[in-house]
């Protein structure tokens, strides 16, 4: 019943033999050891498991690994380039956009998608852009500030 799945994750290619029911998030976390992507619910609401799949934010708990065959995936571990934090990572740190940090990788990946569609969002657009990501610690206040700061840093 197992199938081979080939995925490029954070620019390196992996082929894994998986059961069809394996979820992408488990492929990333357990087969590839990339545990930065978290699992916070079982109904596709919380967004903690968000990764970029072919450049778009997806909930990796709601994608079968077999559906990701031949896809290009970026996880939180792949965001910093050559030791330089991504502006979103920088700004989440700078603006205290995280507390327990559990939602943070997913939050940052969704923000990445958001800014790629809308490089200069309003606060309201940011808030709606985060409809698929729940945070229980920050009240979102500093997350919005952080994304604004990152947007401004990326634009310049």
């Amino acid at each position: 019943m197992s199938r081979n799945v080939t995925v490029t994750v954070n620019q390196s290619e992996h082929t894994c033999e998986v059961e069809p029911r394996l979820l992408l998030v488990h492929l990333l976390r357990e087969n590839l050891g990339l545990t930065g992507t978290n699992i916070g619910c079982d109904t596709s609401q919380c967004g903690s498991c968000t990764v970029l799949m072919d450049g778009q934010a997806v909930k990796s708990c709601t994608v079968l690994a077999v559906q990701a065959d031949e896809a290009n995936i970026t996880t939180i571990e792949g965001l910093a380039q050559e030791g330089e934090l991504h502006p979103l990572q920088e700004s989440f740190w700078e603006k205290h956009g995280l507390q327990c940090g559990f939602c943070t990788p997913g939050m940052i990946m969704t923000a990445h998608d958001l800014l790629s569609r809308n490089p200069d969002p309003t606060d309201t657009e940011i808030r709606h852009g985060l409809d698929g990501n729940l945070c229980r610690c920050t009240g979102y206040h500093n997350i919005v500030t952080a994304i604004q700061a990152a947007a401004s840093s990326i634009r310049s």
Partner: peptide, 12 residues
């Protein structure tokens, strides 16, 4: 605390 949390390195 944050560098580990924003890069996925933190271990839950």
């Amino acid at each position: 605390e944050d560098p580990k949390l924003i890069t996925g390195e933190a271990q839950y």
